[in-house]
């Protein structure tokens, strides 16, 4: 055990670092997760479940902060962009 118990009220215990930017990149992060799991053949509903699961904190943060409608739309757009049909069984042959 450490000599001192961690005190949740102690501001020095925070993981505080100065960021070079306050840029909000939650949307591109969410897009990236969608594409990666789409490539692993998750279907849109399975990808959405990833975002709804509080154990997967990154995707879940997007779901919490932007709402399910936003995530659903992003999933639909990403699947369409990479030529995947919404039901995931067939490929869309749309050359955008």
């Amino acid at each position: 055990m450490p000599k001192h118990e961690v005190d949740s009220e102690d501001p020095m215990e925070l993981m505080g670092v100065t960021l070079a930017t306050h840029e909000d990149t939650l949307t591109p992060m969410a897009e990236c997760f969608i594409e990666e799991f789409m490539r692993m053949r998750f279907n849109p509903e399975q990808v959405l479940e990833l975002f709804k699961n509080p154990d997967y904190i990154g995707p879940h943060m997007v779901w919490e902060q932007r709402g399910e409608g936003f995530v659903r739309q992003l999933i639909a757009d990403s699947f369409a962009q990479w030529g995947r049909a919404a039901n995931h069984e067939s490929r869309v042959t749309n050359n955008a």
């Binding site: 961690v6 005190d7 949740s8 993981m15 909000d24 939650l26």
Partner: peptide, 30 residues
């Protein structure tokens, strides 16, 4: 600790990360 869950357990108790509400500000950036 505090990386994703800005909440802490009372002293001497086990952390309950998923307990809401957060007691500290949430990270909103990348």
């Amino acid at each position: 600790r505090f990386e994703d869950h800005p909440t802490g357990a009372p002293k001497g108790e086990r952390d309950r990360y998923f307990q809401r509400p957060e007691s500290l500000p949430q990270h909103k950036t990348w």
